[in-house]
Computed example of a mutant assay.
Amino acid sequence: MKISRTGAIAALATAAVLAMSSCAANESATPGSTSTASESSLSGTLTGIGASSAATAQETWVAAFQTKNPGVTVNYSPDGSGAGREAFAGGGADFAGSDRAMKPEELTAEALAKSRCDASQGALNLPIYISPIAIIYHVEGVTDLQLDADTLAGIFAGKITKWNDAKIAALNPDAKLPAQAITPVHRADDSGTTQNLTEYLQAVAPSIWSYEPSGEWPVKGGEAAPQTSGMVDTVTNGTGTIGYADASKAGELSVAKIKVGDTFADPTAESAAAIVDKSKRLTGEGRSANDWSIELDRKATGDVYPIVLLSYAIACQKYSDAGTAERVKAYLSYVASEAGQQDAVKTAKMAPLSAKLSTDVEAAAATIS
């Protein structure tokens, strides 16, 4: 899917009030805009490729940004996090959307040599989108399901194969669990959602989940589905299926509660944002002063939900082309702003960045040149 100026018209048509309010609320706050949209000095095309989890949010941001900056065409293709990082590093995109930050070895001048960056200045990981990852399932007669980390790891590792397994039954004494085979569904593409789920399983259930965190599914067997929409469709149309997806895309599917401490947590926007605020920023190791990579604390307790994706915009610190730099800076500054975050909350049901993190990321985006 490519979100262009033409495609954005549909988003504006279905969310006219949002577009109008965004225009009014952000008229003076968005870089590149002055008192009216017609006075924006920005022009040209901006190309992004990446995370499908944030597709709805990107549609909203594109529509609102183009309303304020009619000389700019923004194209965002939600082809997956891995595809986004690859396109950015290879010079195929101005920015990437990724459900994990780029690693230090991906930020070196050598790794960015083919990108649109001044490679000597590196690249930035800027958090823009927080969402819980829902454990979605389709089991006839089961609408309430509770799982702990070990049991979830056992299911996805292929060690728990029946829905009436004793471990699942012990967590769900009132459920009528069928003697049905479990069909775990995983992403077929290199996915930031997979990366975040496997990070959680490795951190919280290491005795069961022996695989390193990865964007590529490490376990043989089960069914594979491309991108978020493919995952949701496969779980929906299967029997005895279980998978994982951005919670905002779960639709009518049943969603499991996950054990945190002594309670079971729902994947809400509030509980997802809470774990980000309890996590630490990564510094050093080749990351610039303006990089905002965050290491999520998967073991945090309290009013949190632990299976969370924090999606990043990946951009050059310095671009080879000054016009590209201005467009990226303006777009990402709006996306990270309080107004941009609230615009997307209304449509994507995401968790907004906290006020402090929003301010910090917007300030980092403003350093792009």
Rank of each mutant, 00 (worst) to 15 (best):
M231Q: 09
V345C: 07
A245H: 02
A89V: 03
Y319H: 02
A250F: 05
A344V: 15
A87T: 01
V304L: 02
V219E: 06
A25R: 14
S293E: 07
V308N: 02
L177W: 11
I208F: 10
L197A: 10
I258C: 09
Q195E: 06
A315K: 03
D343C: 05
I208T: 15
T151D: 10
S248V: 03
S311A: 09
T324M: 06
E140Q: 11
A51Q: 07
A273Y: 07
S248Q: 10
M102T: 00
S293I: 09
V335K: 05
G71L: 09
A336S: 12
A269W: 00
A25F: 08
L147T: 13
A63W: 10
G71R: 07
S43T: 01
A247P: 00
N26S: 14
I135G: 04
G192D: 03
T67L: 11
Q146I: 00
S115E: 03
N196M: 06
S210Y: 09
A363D: 10
R100K: 12
T193R: 02
C117D: 04
L201D: 13
R298C: 00
G222V: 06
I160D: 02
A89N: 01
A153H: 07
E270D: 13
Q202C: 09
A15R: 13
A224F: 03
G90V: 04
A19C: 02
A365H: 09
G97H: 05
Q58H: 07
G158I: 10
T347M: 04
V142G: 03
T263E: 11
M20G: 08
A363Y: 05
L18A: 11
A325M: 03
Y129I: 08
S279Q: 11
V308L: 05
G97R: 14
T6N: 00
T151W: 13
R298E: 13
Q121A: 15
E106K: 03
D360Y: 05
E106V: 00
W163K: 05
F264W: 11
K167M: 02
P226H: 04
M102W: 03
Q317E: 14
K280S: 14
T367D: 08
I242P: 00
A54G: 05
T228R: 01
V62I: 13
F88D: 07
G48L: 08
V345H: 06
K259Q: 15
R85I: 14
A272L: 10
F156L: 12
V255Q: 09
P104W: 01
P104Y: 01
I9E: 12
A51D: 12
A113Q: 12
T324L: 03
P104C: 03
A157W: 06
D148R: 09
I208W: 11
